[in-house]
Design a protein around this nucleic acid. Structure first.
Length: 302
DNA sequence: GCCCAGGGGTAGT
DNA sequence: ACTACCCATGGG
């Protein structure tokens, strides 16, 4: 019987757990009343965070015998090492440099509204497949697809307080899955993409990419069928921690048009966003996304 | 039922 | 290079 690890400590930097896990960068965290349950590395983790006291409580169950727990790992995963104030100042300086000083108050408001939202450090393999499934799909529907995919492997099941959770399938597990199975899971026209991606995926190639530039990463990813600019930038932002990546989906596209009157296809708008917002365009993008999605039709903030 | 979703591929200009 | 159109499915 695996031993449960319990730890709690005070977070010394701004943090918003709900925004971070709800904003559509990760799809498999499950929320209960005041806590979230999901996987970090080799642990099934229950996270509680009190925004008043800034205390984080963790309970973690190892999924294998060589799992080693550390706070470091948790803080790394939640992006707690990112300096949000530095990111904000750098972005604002960039806006001024680019002649968008008029937008700075609005930018500050957006940082304020999404305060504490951080980019997670997720695993490349899971991120890649998740966003391969994300095309023309709502976030709840992506969650359904991934839930079904994970449910294929009963050996990956772990129990937590009467609920079952499934580890994400490994590369070798998926390598024996046929296209028809993906179709039976409701992947639709993405089924072939997923099949091909699994066949073509070489872990060492992805690991080797980590030291390459964002441009080289994107170019590599674009060679896969089903990965275009948007998905490639999502994989770079959420899987490679490339904070300058700028995924353009329908929300970002509409927003850029409404606020800056720019139009174009995905790759054009990607470069526009990168130039406009600079080194941390990915963080800005996430704040824009969270902003748009939390905006009520009338204009207020939910 | 209807509309749209964290888009991408392809064929036609 | 740019555009138009199709793609299969599920959640709201």
């Amino acid at each position: 019987m695996a031993k449960i690890i319990q730890e709690e400590w005070k977070i010394q930097v701004p943090f918003h757990l709900d925004y971070t896990l709800q904003c559509g960068q990760a799809f498999r965290w499950k929320r209960f009343q005041d806590r979230w349950v999901g996987f970090i590395k080799d642990f099934l983790v229950e996270v509680q965070y009190d925004p008043q006291t800034h205390w984080m409580k963790i309970r973690a169950k190892p999924v294998n015998s060589n799992a080693v727990f550390s706070r470091e790992q948790i803080e790394e995963y939640f992006g707690l090492k990112d300096s949000l104030s530095m990111i904000k100042e750098t972005t604002i300086a960039k806006l001024r440099e680019n002649g968008y000083a008029w937008f700075i108050p609005k930018m500050e408001e957006m940082f304020q509204k999404s305060a504490g939202l951080r980019i997670l450090r997720q695993e490349l393999w899971e991120v890649s497949l998740s966003y391969l499934l994300s095309t023309q799909t709502s976030i709840p529907a992506i969650e359904t697809k991934l839930h079904r995919l994970c449910g294929l492997f009963s050996e990956n099941e772990l129990e937590w307080e009467g609920e079952s959770f499934f580890r994400f399938p490994s590369h070798s597990q998926l390598s024996s899955i046929k296209t028809e199975v993906y179709q039976s899971l409701g992947f639709g026209y993405r089924s072939g993409w997923v099949y091909q991606f699994v066949q073509q995926y070489v872990s060492s190639e992805f690991q080797a990419l980590k030291t390459e530039s964002l441009e080289r990463k994107v170019a590599f990813l674009l060679r896969f069928s089903g990965i275009g600019y948007k998905v490639a930038h999502c994989i770079c932002l959420f899987g490679f921690s490339e904070m300058g990546a700028f995924p353009v989906d329908v929300w970002i596209s509409r927003w850029l048009n409404e606020v800056f009157s720019v139009k174009g296809n995905s790759d054009t708008l990607t470069h526009v966003g990168q130039k406009m917002f600079g080194r941390y365009a990915g963080y800005v993008q996430e704040y824009i996304f969270n902003y748009c999605r939390n905006l009520k039709p009338g204009g207020g903030w939910i």
